[in-house]
């Protein structure tokens, strides 16, 4: 049969494997061997294996976690484990919550009732101790607790912790930073800012906390005595001690300046300690 022309039906049967031909044993064996060669899958790449394991694909074929590679900063530090940290935290929280819910659901009826009762008692007890219960409930709560604990004050008689008075102390720590009255730290870099401009975020110049009368000169608060890195232990009283001797910064030897409170608030702290704009360059 070799050398004869093969008709389309024979070709189709050989290629589809629907029928074997005794007259074409070589071709039949070849197509069979070819099919068997296609039964051996290759080794999936690590990327494909990870995708097969997670089942998460995006339009570009990447895991959503790869979006973290677009964040600023070194990628090697930010995406070591493959998932961004916010995603890991979110997954941890979700897992913990799901675990709690699952455990609660798996509990028996008695255990569920006990758990709910425990939570309810703890909530009411906490609210009663804080005096936050409604009056019809607070009074019986106080009586009950008072019968057990004689020294326990009633809910409406509990001493309240006085709010700390706002301090305007201008103490400087050893790093040269000023903690500020609003909890923020003001670094010496603020000294180089132009006068009258906001020296830190949110500063408008008008909301500067000051206890000094507007018609009295404002004295710079105290600073480290010798500039040796020790924290000042005596907070100053801005605006109330104009006679207090001014202390000089040993680094700059710049004289202490006095400003009216309403005139140049932005230069009060840093400018005098690090008078970038005023001190000669050789003294820096």
């Amino acid at each position: 049969m070799t050398g004869d022309r093969i008709d389309d039906a024979t070709v189709e049967a050989l290629l589809t494997g629907r029928r074997a031909f005794a007259t074409e044993p070589e071709l039949t064996a070849f197509t069979a061997a070819l099919r068997s060669a296609g039964t051996r899958p290759g080794q999936p790449s690590p990327r494909l294996a990870a995708m097969l394991a997670t089942g998460v694909f995006t339009e570009k074929g990447d895991l959503p976690a790869t979006a973290a590679s677009n964040v600023h900063g070194p990628a090697a530090r930010r995406q070591v484990a493959g998932l961004p940290k916010w995603r890991q935290k979110k997954m941890a929280i979700e897992t913990a919550f799901a675990t709690m819910v699952g455990k609660f659901v798996a509990l028996g009826w008695a255990a569920k009732a006990a758990a709910v009762s425990t939570v309810a008692v703890a909530s009411i007890g906490g609210a009663g101790a804080a005096g936050a219960l409604p009056e019809p409930l607070q009074q019986p709560f106080d009586r009950t607790v008072h019968s057990v604990i004689p020294d326990y004050p009633a809910g409406n008689q509990k001493p309240t912790t006085p709010a700390p008075a706002p301090s305007v102390s201008a103490t400087f720590d050893k790093d040269g930073e000023h903690p500020g009255t609003d909890g923020r730290s003001y670094s010496p870099e603020d000294a180089g800012r132009p006068s009258g401009s906001p020296s830190w975020p949110g500063w408008s110049g008008a909301d500067r906390p000051s206890t000094a009368p507007s018609d009295r000169p404002y004295t710079q608060p105290s600073r480290p005595a010798a500039g040796n890195g020790q924290r000042s232990t005596q907070p100053s009283r801005p605006g109330t001690a104009p006679q207090q001797p001014a202390q000089q910064n040993p680094r700059t030897q710049a004289p202490t300046q006095q400003y009216p409170t309403q005139q140049a608030p932005a230069q009060q702290y840093p400018t005098q300690q690090y008078p970038t704009q005023q001190a000669p360059a050789g003294q820096r």
């Binding site: 899958p41 290759g42 080794q43 999936p44 790449s45 990327r47 494909l48 995006t58 339009e59 074929g61």
Partner: peptide, 14 residues
């Protein structure tokens, strides 16, 4: 071929 097949299936699944 293995790596190329992996790329093929990544494209298929995505």
């Amino acid at each position: 071929p293995d790596d190329l097949a992996s790329e093929v299936f990544i494209g298929v699944f995505s």
